[in-house]
């Protein structure tokens, strides 16, 4: 194979960040599939096996929480905290990007920040309402009349959020290279320059400082 001009690869997501993403993603898909089998009458009739699916749903939720805790315990917490700070802070460019979509963006664009924030909130709300559904069946003092409805609403919201996320990461030509960041950890510098120029600039300054 002919030598290709070497394209610089920029490390975008650490192992810990990727582990967190994939724990969350894989658990969500199992929870969504088993949850839909419990929720949709057509699937309930077709597949049946409700007690088994209920067990799969509940134990996957427990495994999800345990795996998240494990990543937090064993992973690079400083890096995660720094990432959380990045997602937390919105500057003038982020606000401009949300309005006009032209302003230069950092490692996360404003849309990705919002996606991360909404996903984290959904996770908390899923866990809380799910706990009440599970424990309320055993102890009626913990039975909340609306927990089921809220759990369903969360499913609809997260389902459409997931569709958008999958479109941008797998299909949309200009953004799908970002899949490389969450699988292999790196992105091409030329791509990063187009989508996340402020982040590239930061990395360069850090290189100069070294």
């Amino acid at each position: 194979m002919a030598t290709t001009p070497s394209v610089r690869r920029l490390s975008r997501f650490s192992r810990t960040e990727r582990a967190l993403h994939w724990v969350h993603a894989s658990a969500f898909l199992v929870l969504l599939a088993s949850g839909l089998c419990l929720y949709l009458p057509s699937l309930a009739e077709l597949i049946g096996r409700r007690p088994l699916l209920k067990d799969i749903h509940v134990y996957t939720a427990l495994a999800w929480l345990a795996a998240l805790a494990l990543v937090l315990l064993a992973g690079d917490r400083r890096r995660l905290l720094a990432t959380a700070r990045e997602i937390d802070s919105f500057d003038a460019d982020d606000l401009a990007w949300l309005k006009r979509r032209r302003a230069p963006q950092g490692r996360f664009n404003a849309g990705q920040k919002i996606n991360a924030i909404v996903t984290a909130a959904l996770a908390v709300l899923f866990a809380v309402t799910g706990f009440f559904l599970w424990y309320g069946e055993r102890n009626h003092a913990f039975r909340l009349q609306n927990a089921l409805i809220v759990h369903d609403w969360l499913m609809y919201i997260s389902f459409f959020l997931l569709l958008g996320h999958l479109y941008l990461s797998l299909i949309h030509p200009s953004t799908r290279h970002s899949l490389s960041a969450i699988t292999r950890g790196w992105v091409r510098e030329d791509w990063a320059l187009r989508h996340h120029p402020k982040w590239v600039e930061q990395l360069r300054q850090r290189d100069v400082a070294r």
């Binding site: 924030i117 984290a120 909130a121 709300l125 009349q145 609306n146 609403w153 969360l154």
Partner: peptide, 25 residues
């Protein structure tokens, strides 16, 4: 010019979601 909209948004969403346990029905 950095603003902590992230944590505010997160807390608002969680609070709104939890309050819906009262009004969702």
């Amino acid at each position: 010019d950095q603003r902590h909209y992230g944590r505010r948004g997160f807390l608002l969403l969680v609070a709104g979601g939890l309050s819906s346990l009262a009004w969702a029905g």
